[in-house]
Amino acid sequence: MNLPADLSPETATWMRMQMTMAAARAVEPLKAEINQVDDWANGVFVVLRDVLPYLMKTFPELARNVAPHWSAAALDFDRIDVHGHPAKPDEPLEFLEARKMLYRTFALLGVWEAAQQQKPLKSVPRSRRA
């Protein structure tokens, strides 16, 4: 921050302090809003973590279709986070993280392995109504 050269050191220090305090007051509501959005996103993640294993065990085809995409997201996450490669413009690190976490959690729970071993559901022919 550039202040006029003719200010006394005391006045310049006072102005800097005032501007710093004003900036801190302005940022505080933004921090609170960011924390609320973060809590909301964490709640959505918990819902997905709790519901998706049941759905994937019930509908193994869903798991078989999702697994390769989430596996690729986990690998891309590691490519960026662990190996330091640049992120793709349309998939920043944060965009990949939820899929990476769900993929690895479900791998530990055996969801992917169970889906591979489970036979696809056979469609039941619908009876014709008169």
Rank of each mutant, 00 (worst) to 15 (best):
Q116A: 09
P29Q: 01
K122D: 08
T58D: 09
H85Q: 09
F45H: 13
H85W: 09
L109M: 01
K88P: 05
S123R: 14
L121E: 06
A73Y: 09
R126Y: 02
V124P: 01
W70V: 03
N35V: 06
E33P: 07
A5C: 07
A87Y: 04
D78E: 13
D78K: 12
F45T: 08
F45C: 06
S71D: 07
V51H: 10
S8C: 02
M56V: 04
D90N: 15
L48D: 08
G84R: 08
Q117K: 12
T58E: 13
V46C: 08
L93G: 10
S8K: 10
M56F: 12
Q36K: 11
L3W: 00
V44A: 01
A22H: 00
P4W: 01
K31F: 11
L93T: 09
M56L: 05
W40P: 05
M21D: 03
G43E: 03
R64Y: 01
E91R: 15
A115P: 03
T20W: 04
D38Y: 11
A63P: 08
P60L: 00
F77D: 05
W14I: 02
D39K: 07
E28Q: 15
M15V: 15
F77A: 11
Y103T: 01
L93I: 13
L62K: 07
A98H: 10
V44I: 02
F77Y: 15
D39T: 09
M21V: 03
A130W: 01
E94M: 13
L7A: 10
S127G: 12
A130Y: 01
I34A: 03
S71E: 12
H83G: 02
L75C: 06
L108T: 06
A41V: 13
E94P: 05
H83E: 08
A87K: 06
H69C: 07
E61Y: 04
L55W: 11
M15C: 13
A41P: 04
Q118L: 05
Y103D: 00
V51P: 07
E94T: 10
R16K: 04
D50F: 14
D50L: 15
Y54G: 05
Q18T: 15
L96T: 00
Q36M: 07
R126E: 01
E33H: 11
K57N: 12
L30V: 02
D76Q: 12
A63Q: 10
D38H: 11
W70I: 04
V111L: 02
P120Q: 13
D6H: 06
H69G: 08
E113N: 12
N42Y: 01
S8A: 08
A98Q: 14
V111S: 04
T11G: 03
P9V: 05
E94Q: 14
R104G: 05
V46D: 07
T105C: 04
R99K: 10
